[in-house]
């Protein structure tokens, strides 16, 4: 079919514009809808009092603390493991069969649905290793989920450090470890941080993997072995069991605002990172 180039241009532009608009509309609709329903519930009290009566009344304080504890726990495990793996893959070994296997394994890990991670964590940490439903079990499970992202982003960040900086460092009499810690990692830090912050976002929003491993206790957690309910799990239970829709939306609003803030920080960092190296 022949179309006048001018008309063709207009038609294509219009179609693409509609596609883009639809995407953006869905995003804004979700955010607007959640905030519209949730914001009226939000108050200082909602954030600072514990849930009462299964969450029918009261606030979400203990679930905020639970979310923070679980996120910190998972990052404390995943960051050293992930950055360490990335350093090994980029600095301490050459491209070989082994690095390809490791990389492939980590890619596969990122494709596994989170509910499978939850089941795996439940079987291994909760029952087999007898950690029970706890922040520790949940943190470990989440850490495995976050690993691929952290490995991938750290690897890219380390690779983008110019090779001649390595040469300079070595020629100034540094050992390999000094070169990695004093020259390579500082230059790669913004990129590594971006990956870690994106992981915070995932950690905060994760539900399936957490409900199986950290449980859903509403009490304030007191140790690593306490079961704890995160905001995402709280929202899921409130909504599913029909306990209190207003409180569910209130929780969702807090969750969405948190994740938005985290993404904005990550985006800013990434921007700074790109500017620095281009």
């Amino acid at each position: 079919m022949y179309l006048n180039p001018k008309i063709e241009q207009r038609v294509v532009q219009a179609i693409l514009w509609v596609f883009t608009l639809a995407t953006v509309f869905i995003l804004f609709f979700i955010i607007f809808y959640i905030l519209h329903k949730g914001l009226p519930v939000l108050s200082y009290n909602f954030l600072t009092t514990n849930p009462l009566d299964m969450g029918k009344s009261g606030g979400i304080y203990s679930t905020i603390i639970g979310t923070i504890a679980l996120t910190i726990m998972s990052l404390l495990i995943a960051t050293p493991l992930g950055v360490g793996t990335a350093i090994y893959l980029t600095e301490y070994t050459r491209e070989s069969r082994i690095t390809r296997v490791i990389r492939f394994g980590s890619e596969c890990l990122s494709g596994i649905p989170s509910i499978i991670f939850g089941l795996f964590g439940f079987i291994l940490f909760v029952t087999k290793l007898k950690m029970g439903w706890s922040i520790l079990s949940g943190g470990l499970t989440l850490a495995f989920m976050l690993l691929p992202t952290i490995i991938r982003t750290s690897e890219e960040a380390i690779k983008s450090v110019p090779y001649n900086l390595h040469e300079v460092s070595y020629s100034l009499g540094s050992t390999q470890w000094q070169t990695v810690t004093k020259v390579v990692l500082p230059s790669a830090l913004p990129g590594i941080l971006t990956g870690v912050i994106l992981s915070v976002g995932r950690s905060v929003g994760e539900t399936a993997a957490v409900i199986f491993t950290a449980g859903s206790a509403l009490r304030m957690p007191t140790s690593l072995f306490s079961s704890s309910r995160t905001m995402a799990v709280h929202f899921f239970i409130l909504a599913r069991e029909g306990i209190s829709m207003p409180n569910a939306y209130g929780t969702a609003a807090v969750l969405i605002i948190t994740i938005l803030i985290i993404n904005i920080i990550a985006y800013r960092l990434m921007h700074k990172f790109i500017k620095k190296y281009s």
Partner: peptide
């Protein structure tokens, strides 16, 4: 090698200051 490289300081074609 570390001692050796301290003994023979090297300057490269393009100046590469550490950041």
């Amino acid at each position: 090698i570390v001692e050796l490289r301290r003994k023979l300081g090297m300057v490269f074609a393009t100046p590469i200051p550490l950041p």
